[in-house]
């Protein structure tokens, strides 16, 4: 058994330690957010956050993860109660097929936690590892900017910590 911390909850997983995190999230923990895209760390569909940094879950074995905080898109909110980035993607209608979007949101979340006021160029540079085949890129950039504004407003206004880490 390997102990993982996923979205703030401890999870004991019975899987080979060499198993990439992606398969454990999807197959053992029934979390849909991270997607299989390439298994090679080339497309970012599987992106999650590990200790606040964006990571390819498809090439990260679970043996490397005990004691580290794993966050998936499920950890940011729900369809009924979406987090700021999720809401921004809805508001900008920043999805076509949407298969890449959970990974995009997780990579963007890592950016906004490190840099709350990114420029469009910052966002494009940071999002380079993630592929979108539908061509939703410009909407994604807009959604990240919108979320950055929301997060700042909430922070300045009510003093609420909008990150869910």
């Amino acid at each position: 058994m390997i102990e993982l911390n996923v979205n703030g909850r401890p999870q004991a997983v019975d899987a080979d330690p060499a198993t990439p995190l992606l398969y454990v999230l999807r197959d053992h923990l029934a979390l849909n957010g991270a997607k299989f895209g390439c298994g090679l760390g080339q497309c970012g569909a599987c992106t999650v956050m590990i200790d606040g940094k964006a990571a390819f879950s498809c090439v990260t074995p679970i043996s490397a993860l005990p004691g580290r905080k794993i966050t998936t898109v499920e950890g940011l909110g729900t369809a009924d109660n979406p987090g700021p980035l999720q809401q921004a993607f809805i508001d900008e209608q920043a999805a076509q097929c949407g298969y890449c979007i959970a990974g995009m949101i997780m990579r963007a979340q890592a950016l906004l936690e490190a840099n709350p006021s990114p420029t469009d160029d910052d966002i494009r540079r940071h999002m380079m590892p993630n592929l979108c085949r539908c061509g939703t890129h410009m909407r994604i950039v807009r959604a990240v900017q919108r979320a950055a504004r929301t997060m700042k407003n909430v922070k300045n206004g009510a003093g609420v910590n909008v990150t869910t880490k």
Binding site: N32, A79, Q86, F89
Partner: peptide, 19 residues
């Protein structure tokens, strides 16, 4: 009109045959 399929897609809902 906001797409009906997007909320599940941004939140890890069962949106795809893969799910």
């Amino acid at each position: 009109l906001a797409r009906v399929d997007i909320p599940a897609k941004v939140s890890g809902g069962a949106a795809y045959v893969q799910d």
